[in-house]
Design a protein around this nucleic acid. Structure first.
Length: 295
DNA sequence: CAACGACTATACTTTTACCA
DNA sequence: TGGTAAAAGTATAGTCGTTG
């Protein structure tokens, strides 16, 4: 039972499978090597640690995993500590990074000069995925309704879903669209797994309408660009403190649900709680600069 | 139920690390 | 520098689950 075998077993158990482990390992190693090492560990112990397919840890495997997980699971954290640079990993959408985060990050940097901030710009589904896999400590994201108990979500603001049309388009309000049973304007939206799209499509379905996107973009900026060029109607949200370009008209969507923008962190994370708290406070303070619009 | 793809194990070869 | 053992790599066979 050598440490290398235990490390590989940890990755196999965490990734739930040998092949998956080799793909997710922090360093390069081929599947047969992992397979051979974990098998050698089992042979040495004289115990089966997991059922192969479907993957399931045996009681012995569970016990061994409980033993090795605290060690191998906190290696990166310990490394950062030893290097004197506690790290705090923040995720947000590219737009949030561009338009809202700089003052927040500056404030955190002033408060924690030694803190090593790791920043990742991702879209909403990837942000949720990253925090679920403990790859980030805090994310600013639209908050899904179903969020596990392991996560702590704090609402910052409610944002209305809007449609964007080119000013020169003859569509003046959303009702102009709904009046036709079949909507002929091309819809430009984010990818279907984005919360905004799901909420929008659900609401349409409830009203007996069908309008699937013709163009799928991966940022709201791109959607705006293509609306401007006259490629169709864009699905977006009204971002606070930003005004539409003069060539674009934003259409309110009466009786459509709003989305909640907030900060999600891991509730049990003992990892940099001060920084996490300060981050949340700073986001709140910045958000307060944008009073809710009442139109 | 055959065809296919994904996963795991095995056989064999090459590389690496260590030591005399 | 050359020998040795361990570990990693390549190729591939076997097995299982899915799909048309």
């Amino acid at each position: 039972m050598n440490p290398h075998q235990l490390e590989l077993f940890y990755h196999v158990a965490k990734s739930r499978g040998v092949t998956r482990a080799t793909r997710q390992m922090p360093y390069g190693i081929q599947q047969p090597s992992v397979s051979a090492q974990v098998n050698a560990l089992e042979r040495d112990l004289g115990v089966t640690l997991y059922e192969r397919r479907p993957f399931k840890l045996t009681p012995a495997g569970e016990e061994l995993f409980r033993f090795v997980e605290p060690f191998f699971g906190s290696i990166n954290e310990v490394r950062a500590k030893l290097q004197g640079a506690a790290q705090f990993r923040i995720g947000a959408s590219p737009i949030v990074f561009r338009d809202y985060l700089p003052p927040v990050l500056e404030a955190i940097q002033r408060q924690f000069p030694r803190l090593n901030m790791i920043l990742r710009a991702l879209n909403q589904p990837e942000l949720i995925d990253a925090i679920e896999h403990d790859e980030l400590d805090a994310v600013i994201s639209l908050i899904p309704d179903k969020l596990g108990p392991a996560f702590h979500a704090v609402d910052i603001m409610e944002l209305p879903i809007i449609l964007l049309v080119a000013k020169r388009s003859k569509i003046k309000s959303a009702n102009d669209l709904w009046s036709n049973k079949k909507i002929t304007e091309p819809l430009i939206s984010l990818k279907p797994n984005e919360l905004i799209c799901q909420l929008f499509q659900e609401t349409l379905t409830n009203r007996g309408l069908s309008w699937l996107p013709k163009l799928e973009m991966d940022s709201l900026d791109l959607i705006e660009k293509y609306v401007e060029k006259g490629f169709g109607v864009g699905l977006s949200i009204r971002a606070p403190g930003r005004t539409c370009p003069s060539t674009i008209r934003a259409l309110k969507l009466a009786d459509f649900p709003t989305v909640r923008l907030g900060v999600i962190s891991r509730s049990e994370s003992k990892h940099e709680p001060e920084a996490c708290h300060a981050f949340l406070e700073e986001v709140r303070r910045q958000a307060a600069r944008f009073p809710p619009r009442k139109d």
